[in-house]
Design a protein around this nucleic acid. Structure first.
Lengths: 358, 358
DNA sequence: GACATTCGTCGAAACGCTTCGACAAATCCC
DNA sequence: GGGATTTGTCGAAGCGTTTCGACGAATGTC
């Protein structure tokens, strides 16, 4: 006889929409409409129902909901577990996606792509997820053709060679490469180099690497600077060797862009071992996550990888698609270059360049 | 009129268990029992049903299944988005959990804890997940009391102060400390030291820190070495001071274990500033994540945090709990020590020690 | 004041699966 | 060889939602 109203709420998972309806004195369907807003409900009824929901601690049963509505309110985040990925960046994507999805009332299912196509088919056929976000997409990604036949909404982070019929988001790496070249040219460097990803990445035809390289080389040429691009492995030894060979072949190089998060530190060490003073006689600018750039000594000028923005943008696009809206095929985020110590001053002997005002 | 048999399979999500039953000429329930194995089905029927499933490309509807069976076959992985977490390690946990879960026919929902208790309640009440894996659990973790009241199976990675009523997995830190002592003794060091966590951590009676210390001191004593353990703060200045004081008080120390990820780099710098050559006249071994150990110069011998193992073990334990089995309250994983440059060679002047064969 | 329109609510039919009880047919036990 | 048991299958009752058509009660129209 004590606290009769609380009996049900105490056994979690047991309070159903029918309980709420009973408590509020309305029909089950009315409760449903209050929750979904799909039909007009008078304000008084609304409040009464909401109060009952609160009192009973009602949460809709996800399975029942997805069965009846054909929407699961879950999206899948597909990570390829390829080696050589930069885990921290991936993790930042992942959390950004998770948080943004929650803001759109969706949950996130983590899928490692090593189940292959069958895994995606399983999710699609089982109505487990409403849509897909694929991360770390490669230039020739085998998942892309699969996606076209799957009739599930999806958004790619990264840009494949053929983006017909899919939706992609990425940093505009061509512009990022160009921004680096531009920045170095602006500082007065006439001989510049790009230290890029490990050779295997170019071999794999990974889109972002080649777009960066193209952007860098083109802009440098447009600014009349001599430019060269070389691959660079992740480990200290190889990085030092790459730097050594670069400066041996092109000793006049004074501006260097690094597009390799893992090697950034090693490159700086190698430069100083070879007698270069970074930020003084040699300017360095990197394309890498913010925290990496800030942690080096001297702090690196950098174009940051906007992991949070990309994740958020990807989810927003997916939500639009789920609502049937048309979305652009490729969304490229403009790079933002932050100047830090490693390229703070113009090249010795070159005319100082202020903000140009014609 | 072409390919009539493929019509259904081509519209994904549309083929139901009733279609399969029709195609195989059996009752719906029979198909269900073939799939679940919960009742005996003759081999001939079984094969016929399985063939129909294959032909039609049937995948059960996850929502319907969870509605009828009260099991979702999904587990949640709860990440606290605390700052200062070590992202790469977390990511490795995450992928290990995801892969192991799939082996147990479960999917993984990614939950960032910043929704707070309400988020966990939502998952529980909505029957979205069958169980929880909480990562990066702290000594006094606010999520632990919540868990006790939630009546959802869960496993913690990390050990809280009060593990009553919960299930935890972690590295066996006592054994890790012992492994360090053993390794240094094996190299011929007779005077060794442990540079541990900041003093405040010992003051708080934090389990893993004191267990490491105890393991280290006991094993060193057992091997007849002089051993001392001191606390060590995170910042460069304090670390240098700690090293200085240690070597002043015990100049004969030649083997050092460091159990402090953040200070590892500072300790190495301090040692070389004091004229010690790490890996030559002084051996150093650390307890830290693999990538930290590999990134220092010289690379550090280390007891690594077995992220993959822990993730896998956590999932296995959770599955056992879901099946109603009793599981140990705390599961401790044996440490594995990897030798790298910082302790590669036996102490100068001590007899070389090969693999002992009596 | 009779008629068509909203407005707000209800009842019931799906949705695709699991599981329980029932029931023939086959097998066993003396 | 008749009763008890086991084996293999079926039919139907849920599971907790959403959504559609229906239907009184207000409201507006001439």
């Amino acid at each position: 006889m004590t606290e009769p109203g609380r009996r049900r709420a105490q056994r979690p998972g047991s309070v159903t929409i029918a309980d709420v309806a009973g408590h509020a004195g309305v029909a089950v369907s009315t409760v449903s409409y209050v929750l979904s807003g799909k039909r007009m409900i008078s304000e008084t009824t609304r409040q009464r129902v909401l109060a009952s929901i609160r009192v009973l601690g009602y949460h809709p049963h996800a399975g029942a909901r997805s069965l009846a509505s054909k929407r699961s309110n879950v999206i899948a985040m597909v990570l390829p577990l390829r080696s050589g990925m930069h885990l921290p960046v991936l993790m930042r994507f992942a959390t950004a996606v998770a948080i943004t999805a929650r803001q759109h009332d969706h949950d996130v299912l983590l899928v490692t792509a090593d189940e292959g196509p069958a895994g995606l088919r399983r999710l699609a056929a089982g109505s487990m997820v409403d849509g897909l976000i694929l991360m770390d997409v490669e230039w020739e990604d085998p998942r892309v053709p699969l996606l076209r036949e799957l009739d599930l909404s999806s958004v790619l982070i990264g840009i494949p060679s053929d983006s017909t019929g899919v939706t992609c988001v990425d940093l505009d790496f061509a512009a990022a490469g160009a921004a680096c070249a531009e920045h170095l040219a602006e500082l007065g460097h006439t001989s510049v180099a790009l230290l890029g990803a490990p050779a295997v990445v170019y071999g794999r035809d990974t889109g972002f690497a080649r777009r960066t390289r193209a952007g860098f080389l083109e802009r440098a040429a447009a600014r009349g600077a001599d430019a060269v691009a070389v691959a660079c492995e992740d480990d200290a030894g190889s990085a030092a060797r790459a730097v050594g060979e670069l400066l041996a072949a092109h000793p006049e190089t004074t501006g260097i862009a690094v597009h390799n998060e893992a090697a950034v530190g090693h490159v700086l060490s190698a430069l100083s071992a070879l007698g270069r003073r970074v930020g003084e006689d040699t300017a360095v600018v990197a394309i890498c996550p913010e925290d990496v750039a800030e942690r080096t000594a001297p702090a690196l000028s950098s174009v940051l990888i906007p992991a949070e923005d990309l994740g958020e943008r990807a989810v927003s696009l997916l939500m639009s698609k789920l609502e049937g809206a048309a979305v652009p095929r490729e969304t490229l985020l403009a790079p933002r270059l932050t100047v830090r110590e490693s390229s703070a001053r113009p090249r010795a002997g070159s005319p100082a360049v202020g903000p140009a005002s014609p």
